[in-house]
Write a protein that binds this DNA or RNA. Structure first.
Lengths: 141, 141
DNA sequence: TTCAAAATGTAGCCTGAGCTACAATTAGGG
DNA sequence: CCCTAATTGTAGCTCAGGCTACATTTTGAA
């Protein structure tokens, strides 16, 4: 702590950073899923998934292309980069972990899924580890 | 599920709505704390707490005044409205609940606090109830 | 093969939430 | 009482992420 002058601010700044990267994560996660199923990625798919206009999808794709997470937005052969794939997998893993966790606490599947979506971007490695450990101990009961 | 055509979109729309109201909640929470301590609410306090410029604080205060959560931003006698007070209390309660929960899982206090800040805005009543129940059962061990 | 519907792209708008630079006000110590 | 420092306010900028309206391009069925 030493300084201590501003733990509070640091926490809020972290949350703001998390928000800034959420959409990108959600997009690569969705794209990854679609590619896994063998289909090409269509703007209209993403439009459906996120419940936004196709225009918003196009602009978001361009942004995440700039961040080197996907390629081919121009040529309509949208693919994840290695970086994108890594991010997608880690996001999906967090999502699954959280969802199982909530379900283990007795939450319904649909609600667990919805809450996981919101919360997955805000948990530290430490907390995720604690959750993993909890699920593991539960399994051995 | 019946329809099913668009659960995905609904989930994302919910997250967007949550984001839109997060800042307001954080502000009333902070203001409530300051008022509880008996002090007047100063722009500079909020600036410190959130780690943003005083300009951002002023603009945000005006916005939440429009939402009838606070009064007196003009006259510098900032107070929560009844609505604001209710929101502040419920936000604080969620925060505390989540923080204790993470700590019960073995997470350090500082990390539990930080993660609770991010996650508190994304959990449904159902999940919060499940967490409450879990903590209660833990307590009786 | 044609032609209507679906998909994609462009232009331009809005709001929220951040910023700096500068101006005005308020408060406290000398 | 005055003058400096702290606080608050204004103007005007940026970017992200929504939107509608209006092309254009692609595609599939008749």
């Amino acid at each position: 702590m030493s300084d201590n002058s501003n733990d509070r601010a640091t926490i809020h700044q972290r949350v703001r950073r998390q928000h800034a990267s959420e959409l990108a994560q959600d997009y690569v996660e969705a794209i990854h899923e679609i590619r896994q199923s063998g289909n090409p990625v269509k703007i209209s798919d993403l439009q459906e998934i996120f419940g936004v206009s196709h225009v918003t999808v196009i602009r978001t794709l361009k942004r995440i292309e700039e961040q080197k997470l996907v390629t081919g937005t121009r040529s309509k052969e949208i693919e994840l980069t290695a970086k994108g794939k890594r991010l997608a997998k880690s996001a999906a893993a967090k999502h699954e972990l959280l969802k199982s966790f909530f379900m283990a606490l007795g939450v319904s599947e649909s609600q667990a899924d919805a809450d996981a979506e919101g919360a997955e971007h805000h948990l530290s490695k430490e907390t995720l580890e604690a959750i993993r450990a909890f699920l593991k101990s539960e399994a051995n009961v």
